[in-house]
Simulated assay, not measured.
Amino acid sequence: MKNTMRQRYVAEFIGTFGIVFAPVALSATGTLPSSDSGLMASAWVSGLSVLAMIYALGHISAAHFNPAVTLGFAIACRFPWRYVLPYLAAEFLGGITAAAVVALLLGGGYGAHIPASGLVAAAVGTEAVLTFFLMLVIISVATDKRVAGAVPGLAIGLTVVFDVLIGGPVSGGSMNPARSLGPALFAGGAAIANYWIYVVGPILGALVAARLYEAIRGSEKHAQGAPNDLYQALHDIEVKG
């Protein structure tokens, strides 16, 4: 295999660290002079950090950086189930470490996701729909050979931007259980009590999107894994018996 599994796990840790650190640190700097931690800034910081991490590490681990995405790839048979738990562990650890670093530098309790008052059901639905869009874009650009190699980072990053702009007022716009867990641990209270929303909603949306794209892909000849070299290596082993 081109990359060992250890290298992939490290890449998932670093990538998830990056996409969690950026918006949480932005939130933490909101009280400083000349800061801008409003919804527009949060949306763009979230999207740009995802874009950057995909281009930096996507060729190593396929840039899942999100437990819901890893489960979506697995349910679509584009990622082996035997590696799901290590990927999830790397992603959650990356997110928790990012929140811890922000807490060490700027104080804890920042960047936590809490649904708008009285909108718990709406928050679950919003997270599911937004993650559906995100997973649909991800599985399309990451596992379809017809998509140009330069497209994924930009397409996924921009999807995160519009998702956060829509979901921010309702649920915070997480779409990622690892994004929400670290800040919730340091914020405690309502953030921890409502964390289940950011597990149930994103996973539901990702699984539906993954299965739907497989249904409309058109032909297996267009498909590849995420990461493709791992998928192909395991496929070759199975073929050889």
Rank of each mutant, 00 (worst) to 15 (best):
Thr131Pro: 13
Val164Phe: 06
Leu105Glu: 09
Val102Gln: 08
Val141Glu: 14
Thr131Tyr: 06
Ala123Asp: 06
Thr143Ile: 05
Gly118Ala: 12
Phe162Thr: 05
Ala150Tyr: 12
Ala142Glu: 04
Gly107Ile: 02
Val161Ser: 00
Leu130Phe: 14
Val151Ile: 14
Thr159Val: 10
Leu106Glu: 02
Val120Leu: 15
Gly153Met: 05
Ala116Gln: 07
Pro115Tyr: 11
Glu127Ala: 07
Arg146Asp: 03
Val102Cys: 13
Val147Asp: 08
Lys145Cys: 00
Ala103Phe: 02
Val101Ala: 11
Ile139Thr: 01
Asp144Phe: 03
Ala121Tyr: 13
Gly118Arg: 07
Phe132Trp: 10
Leu158Ile: 10
Phe132Leu: 15
Gly108Gln: 04
Ala116Arg: 02
Ala103Glu: 07
Gly109Trp: 04
Ile139Arg: 05
Val137Gln: 07
Gly108Ser: 15
Ile114Glu: 13
Leu154Asp: 07
Arg146Ile: 01
Val129Ile: 13
Met135His: 09
Leu119Trp: 06
Pro152Cys: 14
Met135Thr: 14
Leu136His: 14
Pro152Thr: 14
Leu130Cys: 12
Val124Thr: 05
Leu104Cys: 10
Ala121Arg: 13
Ala99Gly: 15
Tyr110Gln: 03
Val161Phe: 01
Ala121His: 15
Leu105Cys: 10
Ser117Asn: 15
Ala98His: 01
Val160Leu: 01
Ala122Leu: 15
Gly118Asp: 11
Leu106Lys: 02
Asp163His: 05
Leu119Pro: 08
Phe162Ser: 10
His113Phe: 14
Gly125Glu: 07
Leu119Ala: 13
Val161Tyr: 00
Leu130Thr: 11
Leu134Cys: 12
Gly125Cys: 03
Thr126Asn: 09
Gly107Asn: 04
Asp163Ser: 15
Met135Cys: 11
Gly108Asn: 05
Gly125Gln: 06
Pro115Lys: 08
Val137Tyr: 07
Leu104Gln: 12
Leu106His: 02
Ala121Gln: 13
Leu136Ile: 08
Gly109Glu: 00
Met135Leu: 15
Leu106Asp: 00
Ala148Cys: 02
Ala103Gly: 10
Ala148Phe: 02
Gly149Tyr: 14
Ala116Lys: 05
Gly118Leu: 11
Val129Trp: 04
Gly111Asp: 03
Val164Ile: 04
His113Val: 10
Leu134Ala: 08
Val141Thr: 15
Val101Gln: 06
Arg146Trp: 03
Ala100Leu: 09
Ile114Pro: 14
Ser140Asn: 11
Gly107Cys: 01
Gly153Tyr: 04
Leu154Trp: 12
Pro115Gln: 09
Asp163Trp: 06
Ala99Ser: 13
Ser117Ile: 12
Ile138Gln: 07
Gly109Cys: 02
